[in-house]
Computed example of a mutant assay.
Amino acid sequence: MRRHPLTDRPDYLVGPVVRGFDPDIVDALQTALEKDNPGSELFVDDNTGYVRIHAQRFLRVTRASLSEALGRPIDLPSLEPAIAGFAGRMKYTGDDELTWYLAREDR
């Protein structure tokens, strides 16, 4: 994982901006994103009040990985209060996966 202020081609980065009010959620989401995106370099920018977790072009998190990292079951839509924003486009794939991606899929 590389930590930087997200200045290396920010136009290609996608992923959530997570509110820092629940550090357990932030840590679990980061752990799950690392597990669900092997080979992708995550860029983490911790600004105390919020944390940007991004990767280039595509990022996914599964309910299974997030539940495992958190140590309890969690539904992906319950993350919405913690997500202050995101880069790219965001899409739920059923109840089991949430993705952020760069390009529209309907073109």
Rank of each mutant, 00 (worst) to 15 (best):
M1I: 12
R2A: 12
R2E: 06
R2T: 10
R2M: 03
R3K: 00
R3M: 02
R3P: 01
H4V: 05
P5V: 11
P5M: 01
P5L: 10
L6Y: 13
L6G: 14
L6C: 10
T7S: 14
T7D: 15
T7F: 08
P10H: 01
D11C: 10
D11Y: 13
Y12W: 13
Y12M: 13
L13F: 07
L13N: 00
V14E: 09
G15P: 00
G15L: 00
V17P: 03
V18F: 00
V18D: 01
R19S: 02
R19G: 04
R19M: 02
G20F: 04
F21S: 04
D22T: 05
D22V: 04
D22R: 03
P23L: 06
D24C: 07
I25K: 02
I25Y: 02
I25F: 00
V26A: 08
D27M: 13
L29F: 05
A32L: 09
A32T: 03
L33K: 11
K35F: 08
K35C: 05
N37Q: 01
G39H: 12
S40K: 15
E41M: 03
E41V: 07
F43H: 10
F43T: 09
V44F: 04
D45L: 15
D45V: 02
D46I: 03
N47Q: 12
N47F: 11
T48M: 13
G49F: 10
G49M: 12
Y50N: 11
V51P: 00
I53W: 05
I53P: 06
H54R: 11
H54F: 15
A55W: 06
Q56Y: 14
R57P: 00
R57K: 10
F58E: 11
L59D: 03
L59M: 08
R60V: 07
T62W: 12
T62L: 12
A64T: 04
S65K: 14
S65C: 04
L66V: 01
L66I: 02
L66C: 03
S67W: 13
S67E: 04
E68F: 00
E68Q: 08
E68S: 10
A69W: 03
A69H: 06
R72D: 15
P73K: 02
I74V: 06
D75R: 15
D75I: 05
D75G: 15
L76Q: 06
L76M: 07
P77C: 10
P77K: 04
S78P: 08
S78G: 01
L79P: 00
L79I: 04
P81W: 04
P81G: 13
P81C: 12
A82S: 10
A82P: 00
A82N: 04
A82M: 06
I83K: 10
A84S: 14
A84R: 06
G85P: 10
A87L: 15
G88P: 09
G88V: 13
R89K: 14
K91H: 14
K91P: 08
K91Y: 07
T93P: 02
T93R: 09
T93G: 08
G94I: 13
D95H: 09
D95N: 13
D96A: 15
T99A: 12
W100C: 06
L102W: 15
L102D: 10
A103C: 13
A103K: 14
R104Y: 09
R104T: 15
E105P: 07
D106R: 09
R107D: 14
